[in-house]
Design a protein around this nucleic acid. Sequence first.
DNA 1: AATCCACCCAACCGCACATGA
DNA 2: TTCATGTGCGGTTGGGTGGAT
Length: 311
Amino acid sequence: MGRQPCCDKVGLKKGPWTTDEDKKLINFILNNGQCCWRAVPKLAGLLRCGKSCRLRWTNYLRPDLKRGLLSECEEKMVIDLHAQLGNRWSKIASHLPGRTDNEIKNHWNTHIKKKLKKMGIDPVTHKPLSTITNDKISSNILEKPENNQPIQQEKNQEMLMPQMDVESSPVDQSTITEIKLEDDDNINNNNNNNTEKSCPNNVESTIVEVNNNGFCTDDVPLIEPHEILVPNSQESTPSTSSSSFSSSSSSNILDDLKFLPSFDEWPMENNMGFDWEINDFSSTLDFLLDDDSDMMNNVTYDESWKFEQLL
DNA sequence: AATCCACCCAACCGCACATGA
DNA sequence: TTCATGTGCGGTTGGGTGGAT
């Protein structure tokens, strides 16, 4: 007997979510919490399978998500953690508050992989792509550098892999990080306390080196949280707020969500996720559920919170 | 202006695992 | 212990977008 599919695919909608669907899902979860995803679409009035609802919520709608490009600090942590954990994206994501496994996985595949390859590092093993000897460096495997790249590659590898014996490191040896996995509490504490404002010391020091050694920092402009200017509600209007992260043409719900409470005001997490109260989202829901509502009247919070870094 | 192409990322798919009857 | 069910996870896809020609 085969396994029952997660949903009856006949008649169910697929593809990008619409604003209306987002509203329904948000409204339902805020009223009922996260439980029994299979029942969610039916109860919420959505023609989606439960799995799709769960993914939409966890990867996009969840209010505690941090949007936008990963900072250099976060990127470095991803590399470090990947060196130890491999493609266990959810584990990696658990060390980066506000980031989803999907987001990190995508960022890895689209940005970090390329950077590592460009630096002559195998993104899978975190080791040099080619055997480097003292008198000859095989340049066939690597992308042709702009200038003196082989030397630069060696420098980069040294910077990223200070503990590494380039010629003889065993594959299973952690090559980059000094973070010890068994010290998860430290990692979490570092993340919770520092990711927003600064990097953990060991990461930060490495990043300084990386910055000075061509780690493609130009590709990803870094905006620290403290540099984010939160527009005054009197100055910020929906028409002037860009939503660079909202690549889906149908998904502009995050523009609306920026009127949610600030992160500091969020309720404590419990075993069911964040312990949201409907009142926490009242102003947002007013807006989401009433197309005629005046956005400006709902601007209650003008302090920084996650989505505003994208303004 | 039109077309092509590469890139990005939200979403999907299928398998693995956890749980409870 | 077995089986059904729900959920989590990682790999992959494909549509949208922007730059190049």
